[in-house]
Design a protein around this nucleic acid. Structure first.
Lengths: 234, 234
DNA sequence: GACTGTGAAAAGTTTCACAGCT
DNA sequence: AGCTGTGAAACTTTTCACAGTC
């Protein structure tokens, strides 16, 4: 493997991979970050691929392989220093920066999102909220003043917003996403149960509890469909 | 490929696959179901792998291959009858049955879940709610009366509950999941940002917006990391 | 002519197994 | 002795391409 051109042995190297990193690897890194954060909070200073694998229910080899895309963060015979690895992974994922996020749609769900305290500790700042409904415009929700959709372009530019959370009814979601993309937003977290279409270069993830339930019922029906014993807690 | 032993040409065959169906395939079926439902609602009677693929942003070959694990649902030269394919896929996923679901944790999030109207149309019935807090016990939320955790085993058995939605604080989540598993629940939708551990035979899916955001920021950082142009709207 | 269903090829991902450092 | 980092092997998943049916 053509490992890596960056000098990551010189502490916190910026780890620019020489080889395209598989998307599935990137999707696992946030889980590694979370587990390492827990270990750090628990006062653990050194860990290893075995321990991380047990926590994450992933093989130790996979963890080592995943990390090898970005550099050499461990020490043979010893393992990984938790704080160092955590810092590196956060940097790789861009979690050493702060991200300004807009919420579109301030109905029941949008309200809950704006009041949810879980985003800020992770560097995601909900700095703007938009809604079409004049009854909502001007209200203060979760410390943010709700603006009309018409000022979205200005606000997104002014506040350097690159990420949006969309919580509008399904029927309006695609149109809202189109507008956001038009404004320069490049990552979207969609809460509507639709298949959002975005141009290349823009990312979408969807939060869809019904889809999650539906992908489990298959295994609850008679024919012994337990498949593997491992639990891809997606 | 050793296709399929079931006689699925004789309409709505129960499609017991001879070969273990890959988990990724199962995870895509609910999306097919959703798209087919939309087509049906739009009055479309016949579709094909090309059209479905365009909607779902998946190659037509993948759709045909996925379906081939369960039977032959199309007609060469014509495509798929929307209603027929939808019925078959729902049956495969177990969505032709109704599922009784318990919600554990009736805080802000649990409340929102119990009031969310999106589960029922899809055959998931929130029939019980549990909470440890005496202030919540006895309250009526989303048409369900909140019960103490102590009666969980009884209620789960009495109401034939196989699925649970867990919306309790992270610190209590694993313990609640253990109790649910003990009660015989075999599928869990977890809203806490933890790595839930369950025994083989039990499924977990997690709803974790922060993880979703964190898996996108990588692509928002300078080095041109757009990777593919396709958008795995996870 | 159009489109499915499917073996076979290609691509992607995981696991193995071991050299090499601590 | 213990554990990483990594080529190579094994396995999985996707895509191709075309025979067969409508």
């Amino acid at each position: 493997m053509a490992a890596n051109l960056s000098d990551s042995s010189s502490g916190l190297g910026s780890s620019i991979p020489a080889v395209e990193v598989p998307e599935v690897v990137i999707s696992r890194l946030p889980q590694y970050v979370r587990t390492l954060t827990q270990l750090l909070d628990a006062g653990v200073e050194v860990t290893n691929s075995q321990q991380l694998g047990a926590q994450l229910q992933v093989t130790p080899a996979q963890i080592r392989k995943d990390l090898s895309y970005f550099g050499r963060f461990g020490k043979q015979g010893r393992g990984y220093r938790v704080r160092r690895l955590l810092t590196e992974l956060k940097q790789i994922l861009g979690l050493d920066s702060e991200w300004n996020v807009a919420v579109v749609g301030v109905g029941r769900l949008g309200n809950a999102i704006l009041n949810y305290p879980g985003f800020n500790p992770d560097g995601f700042h909900l700095v703007a909220a938009f809604d079409n409904n004049p009854n909502n415009v001007g209200r203060e929700v979760g410390g943010v003043s709700v603006q009309p959709m018409s000022v979205m372009a200005e606000t997104v530019a002014a506040r350097d917003i690159t990420i949006a959370i969309v919580a509008v009814p399904s029927a309006h979601t695609q149109s809202v996403i189109d507008q956001l993309v038009e404004c320069g937003v490049r990552a979207i977290l969609n809460y509507a149960p639709i298949n959002a279409q975005v141009p290349a270069g823009v990312r979408v993830r969807s939060i869809d509890p019904v889809l999650a339930l539906q992908s489990m019922t298959y295994y609850l029906t008679e024919p012994e469909r337990q498949s593997n014993g491992l639990h891809p807690a997606g």
